[in-house]
Design a protein around this nucleic acid. Structure first.
Lengths: 320, 320
DNA sequence: CCACTACATGAGCATATGCTCAAAATGCTT
DNA sequence: AAGCATTTTGAGCATATGCTCATGTAGTGG
């Protein structure tokens, strides 16, 4: 056995965690061995490993497509004519589906960003997308441009609630264009004023020219994120539901056949809405029983031509 | 809790292993929970997880460059003017360095193969390279061409001892050109006869035109792989050592300043030797104390302009 | 149809892991 | 420099993991 090494003096705490995780997962050593090698207590080694996992320093990636998931991907492609489909294995009914689709969505985003041609990638917001971005590996993407589809000022005035674009830009080192706007303007007139600003116009134009777009999908029910996060009021939500609201993408509410409502909060939405894609690719990242109607509507209205979801959701979209 | 699911009737054993590993590593569940969810005994779940790891269905990847390794990479780049350098964290003095460099080399090869332009990748053989290829993820690389630098018939007549190119082609679905040749011909004349064959000529030409080359590096001492695998005799090895042999790349032996010996077994080598790269990239994948002199020689003779190695080896190459 | 090999299974157990808690260290404010 | 809050540390312990071994089960060749 080796003599206990002194820990490198110039190692950051994260370095130590990464090294411990490397020894544990790649080297297959026990935490006891690692502790001895690194000259620390076993508990400290244990904490470093667990920290590395929770901080995302080490990633687990399934390199084997599960045949059941592959079958669903093929079926979804056929049924809805999609360009991009990934179905993540479920983690069981009790678990937040975000946990399973985030790593898969991250791989898909990496694949897109690996393109050597300069691309414009537009992104929405939301918990799911945020989780996915956290799992993306660091890359050098100076050639690409990232643009947000949606304002980054939430109703309480704080910037960046689920600040997807900034995190993404951090990770992949690309030029990025957030929208210094409220998500919803106070009135249609106020929104028009914002839109008249020159830099805003340019950013929105960039967003509309995106080659690839990644968005979340919100359900319209009592748990509607757009309502829970305080973007629209309960009253407004009810009105939209009565008008046939079925789902929402970057705050734009559409009905069950995927047509945007020309009504209510949509008149105040200050962001860029996603239009049925032609050459470009629009990938929805969403899973969960509650989101099935919203996804079905977006798919039948061809608002999206790509999907990252999990097994139960895929199954639900295929049933019937 | 969920009712125990019946295992899918159409799931292959590997599918089950992959699913168990997904639930374990990505889902963070205990093997007990997994066993219940999948309707099997805990031991079975345990075996599935361990199988998924050993079969490489699940990969562990460090997403955080250790500062000490990054520093060495920078230093090696500066010292030897390299285009590609990766230094893997060590797994401790007792552990086979192959284990640590294989995953890093795999990432590097994936990066090269991700190129959308068609490329020609030449590969050597060896334990290390073979281990790296096993860790490469499956890809669709129909646009690329893979070519072997070295015959695939070993001295005992069996084809494919460390059949790197076939495995690689399997994984990445690219056109591939092995060399249906013995590694060493019986005599220079016999070698010339092989080389006169038309298909052989074309393959060798392809190999010489490679954009990127990945090779192992063999030491020339009592543990020389070229000797242990029975390619040359002890007597021949001694003669080469006396003539100044310092290392070997795809069976071609070079001296301490990286010049190929015009002598002995080199006169019978039927493969394509690696020449000092100009536009193209030649990456050596090798680590271990024993390989340091061979690596140093290859580096100072500019036989290679890329290196994947581990921490102690990098340190040794930088010391002095 | 039987004997044989090779591999899969579950029980039992030694060991590894991760959680909780109290003590110690660190940093920040006054 | 003292006091307070926050974080880090290791001990102890309950639980999870993985190994060994005895037994079972399928597949193969006589």
């Amino acid at each position: 056995m080796n003599l206990p090494k002194q820990t490198d003096p110039d190692a950051t705490p994260l370095d130590e965690a990464a090294r411990a995780a490397w020894l544990y997962y790649v080297g297959g050593k026990t935490q006891d061995q690692i502790a001895r090698e690194l000259g620390m207590s076993r508990q400290r080694a244990q904490r470093l490993v667990s920290r590395a996992v929770s901080e995302g320093l080490i990633h687990f990636r399934l390199e084997h497509g599960l045949s059941s998931c592959l079958a669903m991907e093929a079926a979804l492609t056929r049924r809805y004519g999609l360009k991009v489909v990934r179905v993540a294995p479920s983690l069981g009914a009790g678990t937040d589906p975000t946990k399973s689709i985030a790593p898969i969505a991250a791989v898909e985003m990496e694949r897109v960003l690996a393109s050597p041609e300069p691309i414009v990638m537009a992104v929405g917001t939301g918990r799911t997308l945020r989780a996915a971005v956290e799992q993306i590996k660091t890359m050098q993407c100076e050639r690409h441009q990232l643009v947000s589809l949606i304002g980054n000022i939430s109703p309480d005035g704080s910037a960046s609630f689920y600040d997807v674009i900034m995190r993404l830009a951090d990770r992949v080192h690309a030029a990025h264009y957030p929208m210094p706007l409220p998500v919803f303007a106070g009135s249609p007139r106020e929104r028009d004023m914002f839109h008249a600003l020159d830099p805003m116009r340019r950013t929105m134009e960039l967003a509309r020219s995106a080659n690839v777009t990644f968005v979340g999908v919100g359900q319209i029910d009592d748990t509607a994120p757009i309502r829970l996060d305080g973007f629209i009021t309960q009253v407004e939500l009810e009105a939209m539901r009565n008008a046939g609201a079925a789902g929402e993408i970057v705050g734009w509410i559409y009905d069950e056949s995927g047509r945007y409502l020309n009504f209510g909060s949509n008149l105040r939405n200050a962001g860029v809405r996603v239009l049925p894609p032609e050459e470009n690719t629009v990938v929805a990242v969403a899973a969960g029983e509650k989101k099935v109607p919203a996804l079905r509507a977006a798919l039948s209205g061809n608002l999206i031509n790509g999907l990252v979801t999990d097994e139960p959701t895929a199954q639900a979209l295929l049933d019937r």
